[in-house]
């Protein structure tokens, strides 16, 4: 576990900072509004490299909005305005030199409902690769095998790579989507409720996958399932009404949170 430096002033939202050599993403005074309506208010936090960070909070607290901001999905919505910075590996993601397509390659995203493309399993994983560069078939096959293996799906699909991806179960489809994202070698994987539409066994497989992927990349997870955040994440941020309430090591947040509001939320108390 990395050693975070906690701020001691309890009247301010506690912030966990990581030294630059461990910091992957740094969010600095980020505010965001949908058509003038504030959705995120002055968020500051940093996300450590090769760790799983979970965002938890009630519906509408801004956790998905924050996740989407990290790979600039809000660019597609003209009504969204923002201020503040998101810095990925030392570079402001809104900087003039930033190519959004390249940013989205580096910051992959997986959504709640699995969304395989209407093509074969093989073509699904090859899709991003083909857009990115022309590769000899042999090399492409290797990457596809590596991506499917990393997504813990290879053994289940290796004999039917050219069948439609829609024949897979929901859990397999979600792992296929993760494989498709991994194939382009991202630095960060954003997961927005990746297991909420899956049965408990498929959920556990996704959680196991998340843990195993830590060595490859940095993961950020949004979940409504607090036990899931407690099981898989190293750090947890609790958001409420667009503000960061508490952020810290998951072990601490789930055994002895610093603030009453966090305690009330994670233990199911009336706020």
């Amino acid at each position: 576990m990395l050693a975070p430096l906690h701020s001691v002033n309890t009247s301010q939202p506690p912030v966990t900072h990581f030294p630059p050599e461990h910091c992957c993403l740094s969010i600095d005074h980020l505010s965001l509004a949908y058509a003038g309506k504030e959705a995120l208010r002055d968020l500051t936090l940093s996300i450590p490299r090769h760790r799983v960070t979970a965002f938890i909070g009630p519906s509408g607290c801004g956790k998905s909005t924050l996740l989407r901001a990290i790979n600039r999905l809000h660019d597609l919505n003209e009504a969204v305005s923002h201020s503040g910075q998101i810095v990925l590996e030392g570079q402001d993601i809104h900087g003039p030199q930033v190519n959004v397509t390249e940013l989205r390659r580096r910051v992959g995203m997986v959504f709640q409902t699995p969304n395989p493309f209407p093509m074969s399993i093989y073509e699904n994983v090859a899709f991003g690769l083909r857009l990115q560069q022309r590769l000899p078939k042999r090399k492409r096959d290797d990457i596809i095998e590596w991506a499917l293996t990393s997504a813990a799906l290879w053994d289940e699909v290796k004999d039917r790579l050219h069948r439609s991806a829609w024949q897979l179960s929901g859990g397999q489809q979600q792992r296929l989507v993760i494989a498709r994202t991994l194939a382009v070698k991202p630095d960060v994987l954003l997961l927005d409720e990746p297991a909420s539409a899956l049965d408990p066994i498929s959920t556990l497989k996704i959680e196991e996958l998340i843990r195993n992927l830590k060595s490859e990349l940095t993961l950020v997870l949004v979940t409504h399932n607090m036990q899931q955040a407690a099981r898989v994440s190293d750090y947890t941020a609790f958001l409420h009404q667009g503000e960061l309430i508490e952020y810290g090591p998951t072990d601490q947040l789930f055994t002895n949170p610093r603030l009453q509001r966090t305690e009330n939320y994670i233990t199911g108390r009336v706020t």
Binding site: M226, Q227, A230, F254, T255, N256, P257, E263, I266, T267
Partner: peptide
Amino acid sequence: RQPAASDLR
């Protein structure tokens, strides 16, 4: 219940 925080304690 899978208690957390003060409930777990």
